[in-house]
Computed example of a mutant assay.
Amino acid sequence: MNIPNILTSLRILLIPCLVIVYYLPYKWSYLAAASIFALAAITDWFDGYLARKLNQSTAFGAFLDPVADKLMVAVALIMLVETYADIYVTLPAAIIVGREIVISALREWMAELGKRASVAVSMIGKIKTALQMLSIFVLLLAEPHTELAYVGLGALYGAAVLTLWSMWIYLRASWDDLVQDI
């Protein structure tokens, strides 16, 4: 275990803390849950930075990092969908989670073909992730149906648009391989 892998593991351990704190019956629970999510998001950036800077990239870290990210985002979105119980939150959440499933499967399949590099993370994917993390942070922080919540919802829609755009880029890059067996 190295520092980047410890940070990634910490992100996974923060998931049950996020859920428990979010549902506590106290006014400060939204702030605390948003803070836990922010800590997880920061460790996401920091573990990648340290892995490159300290030359501590590992196969285990390459596997675990995206799993930790997807778990944290999916759990947070599920909580928000339940809290808002509204199509306006459910639709972008479904787009984001659905894209993650599709692209994860695509990356695995392309890796089996020896072409994983054609579906490597792009800059648009990084921007999508940053906006997605920001939107979830704001939605966790805000009381539902407040001005701040609507700002978070706008950011979530922006993340959903970038999600579709990045999915299109990945699918286009691998299209010839996808359709060769049809």
Results as ranks from 00 to 15, higher is better:
Ile3Tyr: 12
Pro4Leu: 05
Ile6Lys: 14
Ser9Ala: 15
Ser9Thr: 15
Ser9Glu: 08
Ile12Lys: 08
Leu18Phe: 01
Ile20Gly: 09
Tyr23His: 07
Leu24Lys: 10
Pro25Asp: 09
Trp28Gln: 12
Ser29Phe: 07
Tyr30Pro: 07
Leu31Tyr: 15
Ala32Phe: 02
Phe37Leu: 09
Ala38Gln: 00
Ala38Leu: 14
Ala40Tyr: 08
Ala41Trp: 07
Ala41Phe: 13
Thr43His: 00
Asp44Trp: 00
Gly48Lys: 08
Ala51Met: 10
Arg52Asn: 03
Phe60Gly: 02
Leu64Tyr: 12
Leu64Phe: 15
Asp65Ser: 11
Pro66Ser: 09
Val73Trp: 10
Val75Phe: 06
Leu77Ile: 11
Ile78Met: 13
Val81Thr: 04
Tyr84Thr: 04
Tyr84Ala: 00
Ala85Leu: 10
Asp86Phe: 01
Thr90Cys: 06
Leu91Asn: 02
Leu91Val: 06
Ile95Arg: 02
Ile96Trp: 12
Ile96Val: 01
Ile96Cys: 06
Ile96Thr: 01
Ala105Asn: 13
Leu106Glu: 09
Leu106Gly: 00
Leu106Pro: 03
Leu106Asp: 00
Leu106Gln: 08
Glu108Ala: 13
Ala111Asn: 08
Ala111Glu: 11
Glu112Met: 15
Ala117Arg: 13
Ser118Gln: 15
Met123Gly: 12
Ile124Cys: 02
Ile124Lys: 01
Gly125Asp: 13
Gly125Asn: 05
Lys126Ala: 06
Ile127Gln: 04
Lys128Asn: 06
Leu131Asn: 10
Met133Ala: 14
Met133Pro: 01
Ser135Trp: 07
Phe137Gln: 02
Phe137Thr: 07
Leu141Tyr: 14
His145Phe: 15
His145Asp: 07
His145Asn: 14
Glu147Leu: 15
Tyr150Asn: 14
Val151Trp: 15
Gly152Asn: 10
Leu153Arg: 00
Leu153Trp: 01
Gly154Tyr: 13
Leu156Ala: 03
Leu156Phe: 12
Val161Asp: 08
Leu162His: 05
Thr163His: 04
Thr163Met: 09
Trp165Lys: 03
Ser166Thr: 03
Ser166Val: 02
Arg172Ser: 06
Ser174Asn: 10
Trp175Lys: 06
Trp175Ala: 11
Asp176Thr: 14
Val179Lys: 14
Val179Ser: 08
Ile182Thr: 12
